[in-house]
């Protein structure tokens, strides 16, 4: 039997912090507190350990190791104490999956109405995977996908289904 198109794994060791603020005003403070450059529209910046993604004109998402979440949360809240801003630990609200493999793009192309092949290397694309909202960015060897934890089982199932052996999109 042929191999699966990609390896799907749920990531349990990543924390996520949602940051909502006026990025033009508080952007520098956020970048300094997060330890990463502020991403441009539709992009994600990373240093290999942490990532800071642009979610909307007033929202950023910091993805970092779960163990660092509490400390980073405090640092960000302190940095934004004088701003009209929201800093929230959303680690338990979200589920994260890794889609690793040479044909990871095929898996996502079946589920998302987005041209992920044209996404820049440091792009972050919010879209839907079948019926569930998700965010997607590139990682070495594949893609990372985040969605709501309430639909994590659904996401895992559709990703596994889309990666079923012998279902590649390229002509045989």
């Amino acid at each position: 039997m042929a191999e699966a198109l990609a390896t799907i794994s749920q990531v349990q060791d990543r924390g996520m912090i949602q940051i909502r603020a006026d990025l033009a005003q508080a952007g520098d403070a956020i970048a300094e507190a997060a330890g990463l450059a502020l991403p441009e529209q539709g992009r994600i910046t990373t240093d290999g350990n942490r990532s800071l993604g642009w979610m909307s004109p007033d929202e950023l998402l910091l993805v970092l190791p779960l163990a660092e979440t509490a400390e980073a949360l405090a640092v960000l809240q302190d940095a934004l104490a004088t701003e009209h801003a929201l800093v929230l630990d959303v680690s338990d609200m979200r589920a994260m999956f890794r889609i690793q493999g040479a044909r990871a793009l095929d898996v996502l192309a079946k589920l998302c109405p987005a041209d992920l092949a044209a996404m820049p290397d440091d792009g972050l694309r919010r879209t839907r995977a079948a019926q569930a909202a998700c965010g997607i960015w590139r990682e070495p060897g594949g893609y990372a996908l985040i969605g709501f934890r309430s639909v994590a089982d659904y996401l895992r199932a559709i990703l596994a289904g889309a990666a079923a052996p012998g279902t590649g999109l390229d002509p045989r």
Partner: peptide
């Protein structure tokens, strides 16, 4: 116009 994404109707 906010995020520059060409979104398809179902999004």
């Amino acid at each position: 116009p906010y995020c520059g994404i060409a979104a398809e109707e179902t999004e």
